[in-house]
């Protein structure tokens, strides 16, 4: 019982982190049909930049802002310089972003070395919170659930309620028509790409605080975002939430009960979902 509860709680908090990372990925795909293979690099860039800010300012919230804004700027630049010219050419965009992720990984290894870093979180998020049955649980990991809900709420409001959000939704439907209505679609695309990068940069600092930052994390979060978004349906925010929950729980419960085979559980889920719903749980044809 205790093991099940602990594994479930681990799964839900991991799902929260996966969701924050994958939300940016799915928003970028939804608007632009760009499969951003450098998404994991932006996660790690956000984490390292956040760490720089934290070590010079000592303030975790500034680190959060620094990681998010830094990743957003790099994302915007990446889109404007390398991706916009290949609009509609998925394979080229995927190859360009793979190339960029390899370069970024080496640059970060050169700049930050191979050590792993962790953030010092504010005292009210530090330590453990008493819980029934399982005893104590790390407070920060519980806070992850709150962060995930906050990200979901803000994104939902931006997309559904603002004027900019109407343009994003219109771009998902039909870029050509949006342009014919007088909207600068390349600029909207760059802004959406920056928004997605901002979210994954935020995830980098939050993930670096809950777990750690180290070389190789870029690949891990790219893979988790891909699996989450494929299961949930590419381009769907709700789908990313459901996908993250499924994958997070499957990983942690698998790890607790059958550790040898746990690594394949998420892929079994992915195959099963794709067999029944080829566009993912909440996805629709592009």
């Amino acid at each position: 019982m205790k093991l099940l509860l602990l594994a479930t709680l681990n799964g839900v908090t991991l799902a929260a982190l996966y969701f924050i990372a994958a939300s940016g990925f799915t928003i970028i795909f939804g608007m632009m049909r760009v499969v951003n293979m450098a998404h994991g690099s932006l996660y790690l860039v956000g984490a390292y930049l956040g760490h720089d800010v934290a070590s010079s300012s000592g303030n975790w919230f500034l680190a959060l802002a620094g990681g998010a804004i830094g990743a957003a700027l790099i994302g915007a630049l990446t889109h404007a310089l390398f991706l916009d010219r290949y609009q509609g050419q998925d394979l080229r965009q995927a190859l360009v972003t793979i190339g960029l992720s390899i370069i970024a990984a080496d640059l970060m290894l050169a700049g930050y070395g191979g050590l792993s870093y962790q953030f010092d979180v504010p005292s009210f998020l530090y330590g453990s919170t008493p819980m029934p049955i399982i005893g104590g649980y790390p407070t920060f990991r519980l806070a992850l659930i709150g962060f995930a809900f906050a990200v979901y709420a803000v994104l939902w409001l931006v997309v559904q309620r603002t004027r900019f959000g109407i343009m994003i939704r219109a771009g998902v439907d039909d870029r050509v028509m949006l342009s014919a209505l007088g909207v600068n679609v390349p600029l909207v695309s760059t802004l959406v790409f920056a928004l997605g990068a901002c979210l994954v940069g935020l995830a980098g600092v939050i993930g670096g605080s809950a777990l750690s930052i180290a070389p190789g994390e870029d690949g891990r979060y790219l893979l988790s975002s891909l699996v989450v978004v494929i299961v949930g349906g590419m381009g769907s925010l709700g789908g990313a939430a459901i996908g993250a929950l499924l994958i997070g729980l499957a990983e942690q419960i698998g790890l607790a009960y059958f550790p040898t085979y746990s690594i394949i559980v998420s892929f079994v889920i992915m195959v099963a979902v794709l067999a029944v719903r080829p566009y993912g749980l909440l996805g629709r044809p592009a």
């Binding site: 004027r163 109407i166 343009m167 939704r169 219109a170 998902v172 439907d173 039909d174 050509v176 028509m177 949006l178 014919a180 209505l181 007088g182 909207v183």
Partner: peptide
Amino acid sequence: HVLSGLTVLDNLYLALRG
């Protein structure tokens, strides 16, 4: 080429705003 995911009102609104 109407924007099928948006309401009729939002389609027209965007056409005005664009």
